[in-house]
Structures are given as structure tokens and as C-alpha cells.
Write a protein that binds this DNA or RNA. Structure first.
Lengths: 296, 296
DNA sequence: TCCATTCTCTGACCGTCGTCAGAGAATGCT
DNA sequence: AGCATTCTCTGACGACGGTCAGAGAATGGA
């Protein structure tokens, strides 16, 4: 990393958090305190469970409870026991609460407008483009990749999304039972592993290995990235991490097969040290087979 | 303004203030509270006056006083009466205070690195470029232009900077007494006016008008922008604001003269509706004379 | 010399944020 | 049925951010 880059990021942090941050506090806390506004903002239109709010805002249960009482006494929300589980309580916006949220919405628009207004059209375009880029790359920098149990909820979500996407994109549709397996057991150490990438706690991608100790070959399976994080180099990061994990577990070769409709995946493999080889299995959904040597 | 732009700015505000903001709070408030860290940060190495700190951080005098006592009891600063004015007190960092600031500095670097680290080289370059752009344009959007008394400190600063720059840039140097005047009186209504542009309270540019009621001609004088805000379209904004002010005061024509070494100024005038005309005065430092019709 | 002003500090106060301990109700498991 | 667990709430407390009023010392101008 070049040293000047750190200075740029430092200056950016300082400038933006102080200026935009202070401004948004001013705009969003018309009369209500900032914490209350934020809470009001997080309540889903069709009701949120208290425990969900608590974990999302990372609040103490006692504190949150008091905040809710305050919003209730202002007539902005109601909380009733959940119909399924009597311990859980559900928070709903009242009519007044919906109205209050709309004014918050408006204030947020005004804040944005107050930044854009003084600029020329051209400057606005540049600013918006640069902001989009910063946001995208900040998101990318917050992605964490961890070995995850394939039975965990985040892993389940990724695998389900993966199958759904194949079903959509393959000419023939996709039926997992007719494809070569990668069962939960096969994706659990020591048989293999599953990497799940998360950003801000939400899963955004995955990739798995099936390890074959005898042949020292690892199969790459279940490579998937969520549509909103495409273009952030996330697939490449997962792939490199898979290669690392395979290497440290004594593998010599990575192998994988892919479908012709997944062009961006094929491009990734071709530029990540893989070479196309003869079919090494009879996966019926595959048109291309790749291999990469892990030794250097 | 396009509606989509507001959404981008809103998302950006939300994303950056929450993520970077929360992170920097975490990094910068190791054990000390955030307010104290910020205060420590603002103390100049060779001592700051209490009143300067108060105005810069916009703190209540009582509150600041207590904060200082706290830093004192931690052994990080000392406050002694100023030698010139016994009412004023000066805050100085102790050795421990300097050390503490260095650790804050380090924490700030770490925060920046934690954002850059997970990215590829290419992504880092893009992020840094986009952050620079956002910072520049946010600065531009915070510039306010106001009619200012030429005797006010901000105005004095701009005019002095203007003269210094001419002295530096003209082939012949610049001697105000040998140039056509624009005295304080001539830049005060109803004779004329001075616009001063400020960003975050610091002056960054100026421009003046001399109004001639009989001929309905206004002379543009003292056009200057600070070196760190060049390229933000600030000169153009000042010029357009001068045109507005002249129009609302019944003027029909803007006139100005400029030196051949000020190429960026000449380009500005040429693209802002001015046309070059014959010399209309004997300004000895001028090589080009321009005019713009204010009526449409 | 007198008086208004400037500057800093202390005392008193309030609301917000955040934490801890524990009570009470509902649930799930054995 | 018994018991551990989950979820929410109340009470109590403390640190922090922020404001107001006024005291006390120093200053500058009439």
C-alpha cells in the first residue's frame, strides 16, 4: 500500500464524518433525539420483533425497552405480543408513526439536496459518481470470508441462492439431485469446507472445497456471489481464499467444472491461473473443465 | 437536479457516517471519551488559546473548562495565563500529551489501513481517487458567498492574498498605488460591494464591483480564489453572483481588465459571456479588456 | 478613576446513552 | 411436571454532552 493512500483515507474520514455526520444529526433530529429517530427508522412498516431491533441496533435490552415506551407514549408505535411466541413482542408503527417517518424521509432528502444545490450540473454528476464508487468499495472492504458450517443459516441462504441462480440461468434448468453432490458432510472438515462471505452481517457469497487426501486434488464447488456485490472482485477473493485453504491442507491441484452460460465465472477462472482441460467427470450440467496447480 | 442523485447522496450519507463514523469512534476512543480525544487533537503543539479552542470546537465555555481540567488531571496538558493578556489562558501539551496524540495518530492510520487492507491494488487506487473527488466536491458545496465589509478580517485576508498573488505572478510585479483603485469606500454600498467566499469559516475567495449609476456600468475588481480551492468552479460562482448583484442594482454592463499572465482568469471570462473589447481605461497592469451585457 | 467588556472558571442542572441485576411471563426439553 | 432457557421489562446507577447563571480577575477606553 502506498503511504499517501492512508493520508487520503484519513482526510476523507475526518472530512466526511464531521461534515456530513454533523449535518445529518442536525437535519434528522428535528425535536426528537437522534436515537429515537434511528429506532423509528428501523421499524418495518408491517411490524418488527423487539429482539430483531435489539440486535440490529446493538442496543441493551433495558435501554431499548425504555426507548420503545417513549415512542409509545408519543403515540408513534404500538407493541403487542407476537401471536406465535408469547415472549416475543412486535412493534408496529401507528398512523402518526408512519407520518413521522415520512417527515424524517423528507429531512433526509433536504440534507442531500443541501449538499447538491450549490454545485453546477457537472459537479453534481461527478460527486454522485464518486460517492457511488466510494460506497461500493467501502462495501467491498467490509466483506469478511470465514469457514462456515454448511448447516448454518447464512450458509443455507447462500446455497439456496446458488441453486436458484443455476435454475434461472442454465438453458436446461438445474436439478441438484442429477448433479454431482456436495453434501453438508462433504463440505465439513476434514472432508471439505465451505467459505461464506458476509458484509455487515448479511451473507453475500460462498465457495466450497471437496478435499481428496489420496490424490491431493480439491474440487471447487458452490461458487456464488450475490447480485448486489457483483463487480467488487468478491468471486476472485473467495477463489484465492479457497486456494489458500487447499494449499495449507496439503492439496496440489484445484479442479472445477462449469456451465457455458456462466461466462463471468469462466473469465474468472481463466484469469486466476486455471487452464481448461479434458472432462474429468461426467457432470451433466458442465461444458468446461478447469485445473490449477497449487505448487509454485 | 435529477431525483436519482438525491438517493445516491442519501445512501452515501447513511453508509459512510454509520460505517466509517462508528469505526473511527471505536478506534479513536481507546479509553478516553471521544470529546476529550477531539479536544486533545485540536491543541496546537506550541500552545492554543482557550478562546480559540472554544470557537473552533463550538463548545460552551463551562463545558470546555471542565474538559481542560480533566485533561490536566490526566497530566496531558497545562494551562497558564497568556503573557500578553492576563484574562486569556493558553493550553499546552505536556510530554505525555504529545505521546497521547501520537497514539491517536497511529490509531487513525490503523483505521485507514483497515479500510484499504482487504482491497486489491486496483481497488485501492479507485477508492482513493473517489474519496479525493468526494472530499473536493463536498468542500465546494460548503462554500458560502456573502457581501462583506472590505474592512472585515476575512475581507482583509482575501485582498492581501490577492495583492500578494499579483506581485508574484505579474512579470513586472504589482504596486497597488500605481493601479486603478478599488478603495474600501468604493467597495461599500452604494458605491460598490465586495463578495467574500468562505468554506468552514475560512475565507477562500473574493470579488468586487464598482457601481457607476450614471452609465449603468459595473467594474469587476479583485477577483481571487485561494490556491487550495482552485478547480472547484469557485471563480465562476463568484463571477455569476457579481453579475446577479449588478443586475439587481440596475446595472446593464459588466466591464473588467486583466493581465496576460492570468490565463485561467481570461479563460473564465471568455466562457462566461464576456467578449474582449478595446481598452476602456489606462490600467497599466492590464493587457486585455472585457465586457458583458447583463440584459437578456 | 470608573465602568463596560472580555475571558475563564465554578456550581447547578437536565437529558441522553449505556450498563447491570433481577423479576416475571412464556416456551421447550426431558 | 420440573427445569433450564428465552424474551421483555423495571429499577438503579453512572458517565457523558450540553446549557445557564453568575463570580472573579484582567483589560481598555472615557
Amino acid at each position: 500500500m502506498e503511504p499517501g493512500q492512508i493520508d487520503v483515507v484519513r482526510r476523507f474520514n475526518r472530512a466526511v464524518t464531521r461534515r456530513v455526520g454533523a449535518l445529518s444529526d442536525e437535519y434528522l433530529s428535528r425535536d426528537r433525539s437522534l436515537g429515537l429517530s434511528r429506532l423509528l427508522w428501523e421499524v418495518e412498516p408491517d411490524g418488527s420483533e423487539v429482539r430483531v431491533l435489539r440486535s440490529r441496533l446493538a442496543l441493551d435490552s433495558g435501554y431499548l425497552s425504555r426507548q420503545l415506551r417513549r415512542l409509545e407514549s408519543d403515540g408513534l408505535v404500538t407493541t403487542d405480543p407476537d401471536s406465535d411466541d408469547g415472549r416475543v413482542r412486535k412493534v408496529r408503527l401507528t398512523e402518526a408513526g408512519v407520518a413521522e417517518r415520512a417527515t424524517l424521509d423528507l429531512a433526509s432528502d433536504e440534507l442531500a439536496a443541501s449538499i447538491l444545490d450549490p454545485l453546477t450540473d457537472g459537479q453534481r454528476g461527478h460527486l454522485v459518481a464518486a460517492m457511488t464508487e466510494v460506497e461500493r468499495l467501502l462495501l467491498a472492504s467490509q466483506v469478511r470470508i470465514e469457514i462456515t458450517d454448511p448447516r448454518a443459516p447464512d450458509a443455507r441462504y447462500c446455497l439456496r441462492s446458488y441453486f436458484e441462480e443455476l435454475q434461472r440461468r442454465f438453458d436446461t434448468g438445474f436439478n441438484p439431485t442429477r448433479s454431482i453432490s456436495a453434501s453438508d458432510d462433504e463440505m465439513t472438515l476434514p472432508n471439505g469446507l465451505l467459505l461464506v462471505a458476509t458484509a455487515q452481517g448479511t451473507p453475500v457469497g460462498c465457495g466450497a472445497l471437496k478435499l481428496h487426501a489420496e490424490t491431493r486434488i480439491a474440487d471447487v464447488k458452490r461458487m456464488w456471489t450475490s447480485p448486489d456485490t457483483r463487480g467488487l472482485g468478491l468471486g476472485r477473493r473467495i477463489l484465492e481464499r479457497l486456494a489458500d485453504e487447499a494449499t495449507t491442507r496439503g492439496m496440489q491441484t484445484l479442479r472445477l467444472e462449469t456451465n457455458r452460460t456462466l461466462t463471468e465465472a469462466r473469465h474468472l477462472y481463466e484469469t486466476a491461473g486455471f487452464t481448461q482441460i479434458e472432462a474429468f467427470n461426467d457432470e451433466q450440467y458442465a461444458h468446461h473443465w478447469f485445473e490449477r496447480n497449487l505448487e509454485r
